[in-house]
């Protein structure tokens, strides 16, 4: 598997994500800049957490206009795998690559703590190393992670089984407890929790590793390394 992580000005989880994919999961992973306009050499492109462009206007609203985002849309339209984590999820919804939007947490707090998720789908490119119903503990760290979709959109994405992860104890007010959701085609996933912060026992848990192992399994370009 050959992966890329996009570093926008203000991204701050890019190096953690590269570390998780490369040093722990054992796949090639390059850091690329927001000016890049060709993504065709990658199997997976990841949009990391942080505060791209200072979160001006709305989280992710300005990053959407970076040159790399046009390339990312072409990449996703061609079936490439795209993973957005935290601010990356916000950017993907702003760019229209994922349905819905992220608004302020229900209680207006910035929440930084481990949360428990339930795996709803274990047959996606991002979750094939998990079991349906499996519970994962991953950290969240966000102020605007309250997922909203209007009732029609919500009905549509439930009917299409696009929800991959749900909070077991909803921390932020997200509709239907949604923590991670894909596009209709299933090749783009956005999630608020940080799998890259749970890939080594030293970090307090390894439940996030399965996500990167799933992508490696899906793209079959590298041996699976690391143990959960």
């Amino acid at each position: 598997m050959k992966a890329a992580v996009i570093s926008f000005p203000g991204s701050n989880c890019d190096l953690d994500l590269q570390w998780a994919v490369q040093q722990i999961a054992g796949a090639d992973c390059e850091l690329i800049k927001q000016e890049q306009t060709d993504l065709s050499s990658y199997d997976v492109v990841m949009v990391p957490g942080g505060f791209s462009y200072g979160d001006y206007l709305r989280s992710g609203a300005i990053a959407r206009f970076s040159p790399v985002m046009t390339a990312l849309k072409d990449f996703a339209d061609a079936g490439g795998y795209v993973l957005g984590i935290c601010n990356g999820f916000q950017i993907l919804t702003e760019a229209g690559l994922l349905p819905g939007a992220l608004q302020w947490n229900r209680d207006l707090n910035f929440i930084c703590e481990p949360v428990t998720l339930t795996v709803d789908r274990a047959d996606t490119a991002f979750s094939n190393q998990y079991r349906v119903g499996e519970q994962l503990t991953l950290p969240i760290a966000h102020g605007e992670g309250n997922y909203y979709a209007d009732p029609e959109t919500l009905a549509e994405l439930e009917a299409n089984d696009q929800v991959v992860f749900r909070y077991t104890d909803n921390p932020n007010g997200s509709v239907h407890d949604i923590a991670g959701v894909t596009n209709a085609a299933g090749n783009v996933l956005g999630m608020m929790p940080h799998p890259e912060r749970a890939v080594e026992a030293l970090l307090g848990g390894t439940d996030g590793l399965g996500l990167f192992q799933s992508l490696i399994q899906q793209t079959k370009g590298a041996d699976i390394r690391g143990t959960r």
Binding site: Q103, W104, N105, R106, D107, L108, N146, Y148, D150, P151, G173
Partner: peptide, 14 residues
């Protein structure tokens, strides 16, 4: 402004 169907936590606090 938020759509009427969106609960706005900041407005609730105000």
């Amino acid at each position: 402004t938020y759509k009427p169907s969106v609960l706005d936590p900041k407005a609730e606090v105000i």
